[in-house]
Amino acid sequence: MKKSLIIVFLFLLGCGGGGNIINMSFPDSVSLVKEEADYIYITSRADRKWLLITGEGEKIDSGNLGCAPIKNMAFLRKFFIFCEKEDELKVEIYTHERYKDTLKLTGEIQGIFTGSVLCDDGICFTVYKDGKTIFYKIVNDIKELFSKEGICIPLSLSSYICDGILYPDKVETPDGGLIFPDQISGPILSIGREISVLKDESFVHLLTLKGQPLSFLSFDDKMLFFDILGYARIIDRKTLEETSISCGSYPVSATATVEERVYVLNELNPSITVLDLKGMKEIKTIW
């Protein structure tokens, strides 16, 4: 009897283990703050949850939100969470300072969140309401910048797409295309596996990837596309040569340190794949 109980106990221990650290379905946004260690912030719009872990895979804290977190970003050692209250058509902006260990409501704006991007000395973001999009900048406080007609997404402080037109160049963007902001090459257009860049007021073909990119990171000397086949495609900016590292399935969001340690968020099998770009290897997977 005692023996069988021990077997059952061991079996259950083996099955359950300690449980996954990334205990949320459909995590879709990741960012990092680097201090004495890497601190990784993960949110799930579908589950309305947030999670803070270290780059080594140790859980710091987690919680639920009363809104749907669309995106999280890091700036000046703070995490910013853009969260939507769909029934009230309202965007709530939360900040999370790791040392203060609190999630603080920083601002509320009526409308629908359409996008955000790092710009100059802050985060630029956009909110759509009543047929126009208002552009804001957040450093410590939220400042309204300007507004444009239609549904717009920001690419930088001066570049944005409104109703399928890329400004200030006034270039038409095709339906079904995804645009990745890049400070160095300008906006990058992806239609399926085809990658184009803006040149002389039109998108020109740059390269064909082996799989459709789902997310993108920009470095001075290279571009990183994380594709649907589960690979990080590293493209040398000068030669356009491609090298690949496996990064887990459906990499929807990614973040990196200046030392080129990359954290890739996998949406369908909730996990973080940690890559070392300098060593060109996959370090580990945090489940």
């Binding site: 939507e84 769909e86 029934d87 058509l89 629908i112 359409t114 996008g115 759509y128 549904i151 717009c152 997404i153 797409i161 109703d163 399928g164 963007t173 095709p174 339906d175 079904g176 295309g177 995804l178 645009i179």
Partner: peptide, 12 residues
Amino acid sequence: FSLNPFLLMWKI
């Protein structure tokens, strides 16, 4: 979803 730019606007 808005079609262009492609974006999840809301869910109800």
